[in-house]
Design a protein around this nucleic acid. Structure first.
Lengths: 237, 237
DNA sequence: GATTGTGAAAGCGTTCACAGCC
DNA sequence: GGCTGTGAACGCTTTCACAATC
């Protein structure tokens, strides 16, 4: 039996949590936060599942990887669960991020504000284009990409965000890695080549749209060239 | 048995393609397009896999769902494969999209340009805030959200993009569905409730960062409170 | 009585390995 | 000889179903 010293990680915390579960924990966390704001103190897997758009068994399995933090016949204490998920996700402190690329997307990300609120303050935004250097985005002055190592070192940045055009993305990644960043969120439509130790996640907006296009095309009946739009009721599922 | 009229969809095209494969086809498509631009006429699964950052068996399995379009001992003809993937993804014609929300993200998406190039022209952008109506973003004038039904009907829009704050996202979804949209790309951190027939995909930037945070936290050693940053060489994987 | 936690079953997705074909 | 196409094996994820617990 693992001893619990101070409410901190028992053995459990060292066991690897399945990727699929890790990707859902942030969703549970947001919902639990909202529930806490509404003074809800206890929640069942059934209710949490409903709010998260998944099924209850999945919620219970997911939460069981964190430990046995529920009470049978009752449910989960919201505040405690928030604490445990935050701890597991490493959200007990802020993770400053640096954004590479001050184009449209970089500007939007810097100006978005939601990052900082959720524990990912923008420590800096850089661009290779001298013309963009000095302009202010979301309260952060754009600096030249050559200053990347300094920003990463002084602000203790572990996470880099690539918001450059596809052609510049590999260079951005190389610079981030050299500067000491160990995780990258890549918005460019490019497969990055980085050392194995670097964690990369990719968000490709065009890919998402193309997946939707596939489903639209299917419901239109495949090869038959239906004019898209307006009065569809659509297929079954 | 559906008859094959003109090199269009054989039986194969009606078979459902696994989700995981559908999500990779756009990646192959982009790479094949780049290869075509460089006058590459034929490509092996090995090479395509390398460029896509996956393994060769996966590429072959994925492509086999489209049909047997390769040549043993040789590889795949780039141009033909591009054609087949585009057809399967429904990219033989444009899919105009409408963006709801002209805040930071909506502006970035409208101004991005990459959408139109890849077959998803911005048919309109709407906001509920009168103050934003009339301003021009990426060549498109912002219109009031009440005009949504008109835009969807006249421009034959099937895909809606939600770029509102989380609190407004469900209302945006309701309006999109009422206007006749059948697919939604949701950037708001909210689980949408929509009719089953509506296809929804979600992109949550904060979730992606939190997944990275999880991995950073793990490499830092879990409960031990390591100052993030600078001179890490990191763990094994 | 209600609800969790979890083995076991079922379902998907990935990888292997090799027959089939050029 | 080289490379595709694919059954079979494997591993991960989801779902079921029920004993354990409050």
């Amino acid at each position: 039996m693992p001893n619990v010293v101070d409410g901190m990680a028992p053995d459990r915390a060292r066991r690897r949590i399945p990727d699929a579960t890790v990707s859902r924990l942030p969703v549970y966390l947001r919902i639990l936060g909202e529930q806490a704001d509404e003074r809800v103190e206890s929640i069942s897997s059934e209710r949490l599942a409903e709010l998260a758009g998944v099924n209850a068994a999945k919620v219970r399995k997911d939460l069981s990887y964190l430990g046995s933090y529920g009470t049978r016949g009752v449910g989960y204490e919201v505040g405690y669960l928030v604490y445990q998920i935050r701890r597991e996700l490493g959200l007990t402190h802020d993770w400053p991020v640096v954004i590479v690329g001050a184009g449209n997307l970089g500007q939007a990300l810097a100006g978005y504000g939601g990052f900082g609120e959720r524990g990912f303050p923008v420590a800096g935004i850089v661009d290779i284009d001298e013309a963009k250097v000095g302009t202010v985005l979301g309260g952060t002055r754009v600096r030249h990409i050559d200053e990347l190592p300094q920003i990463v070192a002084t602000k203790r940045v572990n996470i880099g965000v690539i918001a450059t055009p596809g052609t510049a993305a590999q260079d951005a990644a190389d610079r981030l890695v050299r500067a000491g960043v160990t995780s990258i969120l890549n918005f460019a439509p490019t497969v990055l080549s980085v050392p194995r130790a670097i964690e990369v996640r990719k968000v490709d907006l065009a890919v998402e749209l193309q997946i939707l296009s596939y489903h639209e095309q299917r419901r239109a009946g495949g090869s038959i060239h239906v004019v898209p739009g307006s009065t569809q009721r659509s297929a079954s599922a």
